[in-house]
Amino acid sequence: MSWPDLDDLDHRIIAILSKDARISNRSIAADLGVNEGTIRLRLKRLQQDGLIAFTALISPKLDRSTKTAFVSIQADMTRFKQIARELRQIPTIHSIMTTLGPFNIMTTCFYREIEDLHEVTVRQIMAVEGVQHVETSIAVKTVKFTNGVVGVSAVAKG
């Protein structure tokens, strides 16, 4: 994780768009008292550097059935990062982090039915060469989750 060089203007642009990403560059520029071109350039840089991304969130009202599980993986230490990258293609895996600890890859999965989780762990994750052991833990209650702050750079780096 690198240290981005962000100034006050960057932070103010991000704060505005974190609430509503549909606001036009012109309107942000007017709000902050700068040129529209400045906003455009800043946004381009922030996106290119993998610091922000724009996405849609839907209300749980629409689909109450999504549940969270943590799937922790012990993978071949000599190539665990590569194995973690291979797991990216599995759509139900929401996030992947390589870690130093009892497991070297930790993932978060979203699923709807318990058999879907079985499908992901047994048929998809364990099928990846080099995956040695998998442990699944179901989140029965989310006590806290911080919205809006994510690992954008993971996507930008590809």
Binding site: P4, H11, R22, A53, T55, V150
Partner: peptide, 12 residues
Amino acid sequence: TLRVVAVSDFAV
């Protein structure tokens, strides 16, 4: 039912 937002990196 819908919100379109900017998400920002931990580093930000």
